[in-house]
Design a protein around this nucleic acid. Structure first.
Lengths: 245, 245
DNA sequence: CGAACTCTTGAATACGCTCAAAACGCGTGG
DNA sequence: CCACGCGTTTTGAGCGTATTCAAGAGTTCG
C-alpha cells in the first residue's frame, strides 16, 4: 500500500523541515540519533495514511505534501480537524492507535520513527519534548481558532476565514496589509473545504461565487484564488478577535 | 479585584490536585521548589480572570471551582473553548498575553506561578514538561472532539454530547453501560451551554425540554439532570466515532 | 413583595441543506 | 483531433432546522 523507502539516505542536515519539525532544537548528536532511527514513507494523493482506531506503530513528520486530519461519524458525516503541512507532526507518543483519519491529499513524504524508540528518546532528550510541546500548543491554538469559526461564523465568514488562514500559512509573511494582490493556491477541493468548515460543498461553491461576483476574489481556474485587496477579504471574516500571535 | 492570598500555607502534599496537575510527576525535591514559588489567588463566581489580549504574568492550575475559556468576536458573538476544572492548566509558557477570555463560573482557587520563574523551571525540570505535554495533548484531543460536535452535529446531538461529556468527567468512572441512573450537575447556565455548543440559548432550552418530554432525561431543578438510561442518551449523540481512549 | 435573573414557549423568518440537473475540466482512446 | 467518460464545480428550487423577536413563567435575593 504505502511506498516504503526504508533507508533512502537523505541527510537530516539537508532536510527542508530541519528547523521547524520536532527535531528543530536538536543538536548534532541528537540529530545523529534520529538520523539512525528514521525511515521515509511515501503516500500518493488520495491514499489513506491511517484510519481512526487503527494501530499506529510510528510517529512521523510531514516532509513534503499536504495531508488532512479528520474524524467520521457512523452515518458518514465527516469533519476535518486540521491540515498537515510540511513539518507538522503525526501521531501521539504513548498511544498505540490513531484517534483520527489521516489522508494524503497530495503526494506525501513522511519522516517516520517507530513509536517505542521515539518514546524512549523523548524521555532522555528534552530538546525533542520541548519542541513537541511548542508544536502541540500551536496545534491547540489552531484547533481553538477553528472552534470559534465552526461554532459562531456564517458560511460567508467561514469561507473568508479559510482563505485568510491558508494565505497566512502560504506566505509566512504576516498580514500583508499592503494592497498588493495575494495569490492563494488551494490544496483543497470544494468538498474538502466543506469538510473543514462544517458546510456542504454546494454552500462552499455558492459563497465562493458570491465573493467572486463582488470582486473580493478572482478565480484563476478552480483552485487558484487571487485576492486584489486583502483588507476587503478580512472584512468578510467576521473580524477575528484580538489576533493572538 | 482578585482576592490574593499570596502565601496561604497549603502543603503541596495535601493538595487535592497533586496527582493530576502539571506537578503530577514531580519528585519531592521538585515539589519543594514549586511550593516555594507558588501563590494562591481566588476569584468569585462571575469574575473574569483574564481578558483575551491582556497581559498574563502568571500561569496557574485550577485547584477548586470551574472556569471557562472563551473567545469573543467584535460584534459580541462568543464561543466557549473549554471548561477548566480542578487540575487544568491556565496560560501558556513563553507567551505574555492571554489568547482567550478566562472567567470563573463558580468560586475558583488558582495555584499560580509567576511566568518567568516557571519557564526557567520548565527548562531544567523535564518532569514538568512531560506532564504539561500530556495535558496539552489531552486538551488538543478535547478541542478536536468539539470541532466535530460544532461542525457536524445537530442541536439535539450537541446537547446529548454535552451531557455525556460532563457525565464522563464527573464520574471518572468510564462509560456506565449498566442501567443505573446517572445524575449530572450542570455547572452551566443555558446561555453558557449555548456558548459552548454554538447554539442560541432558546435552542438549548427547547432541546432539553424535548429530551425531557421523551423521558430520556429528568430534571431536578434547572441545573440537575438525571439520566435513567445512559444508553438511550448515547443514542442521541449522533454516536461518537470510534471512542478514542 | 418587587427586581433581576434565568428559563421556557410561541410565531415568523432566514440561512444553509437536500435533491436535481447542467456545465466544466481533463485524461484516455478511437 | 474529437468523442467519450468521469470527477469536480456551479446553479436552481424547495425545504427544514435553528435563529430571531417577543412574551410570559419560574427562581432567588434584597
Amino acid at each position: 500500500m504505502a511506498i516504503n523507502i526504508s533507508k533512502l539516505n537523505v541527510q537530516c542536515a539537508d532536510c527542508p523541515i530541519r528547523h521547524r519539525a520536532v527535531c528543530a532544537k536538536c543538536d548534532d548528536d541528537e540529530l545523529a540519533q534520529l538520523e539512525d532511527m528514521k525511515f521515509y514513507r511515501m503516500f500518493e494523493a488520495g491514499q489513506t495514511i491511517v484510519w481512526a482506531g487503527d494501530d499506529l506503530t510510528f510517529v512521523a513528520s510531514v516532509v513534503r505534501g499536504v495531508a488532512t486530519l479528520g474524524q467520521t461519524l457512523e452515518d458518514g458525516r465527516t469533519q476535518m480537524l486540521g491540515l498537515l503541512l510540511p513539518s507538522d507532526f503525526i501521531g501521539r507518543p504513548w498511544r498505540g492507535t490513531s484517534a483520527y483519519d489521516v489522508s494524503a491529499i497530495t503526494n506525501v513524504t513522511l519522516c517516520c520513527f517507530r513509536r517505542k524508540p521515539f518514546e524512549e528518546m523523548l524521555i532522555r532528550t528534552p530538546h525533542i519534548g520541548e519542541r513537541l510541546l511548542e508544536m502541540t500548543m500551536d496545534e491547540l491554538d489552531a484547533a481553538r481558532e477553528w472552534m470559534l469559526i465552526l461554532g459562531r461564523k456564517t458560511a460567508r465568514e467561514k469561507i473568508a476565514s479559510l482563505l485568510t488562514i491558508i494565505a497566512r500559512r502560504e506566505k509566512t509573511l504576516d498580514v500583508p496589509l499592503a494592497k498588493a494582490p495575494v495569490t492563494i493556491d488551494l490544496p483543497l477541493t470544494r468538498e474538502a473545504m466543506s469538510d473543514y468548515l462544517g458546510l456542504t460543498l454546494e454552500t462552499v461553491s455558492r459563497q465562493i461565487s458570491a465573493l467572486k461576483r463582488e470582486d473580493i476574489i478572482l478565480l484563476e481556474g478552480k483552485r487558484r484564488v487571487v485576492v486584489p485587496d486583502m483588507a476587503r477579504l478580512l472584512e468578510q471574516t467576521g473580524s477575528d478577535p484580538i489576533s493572538h500571535i
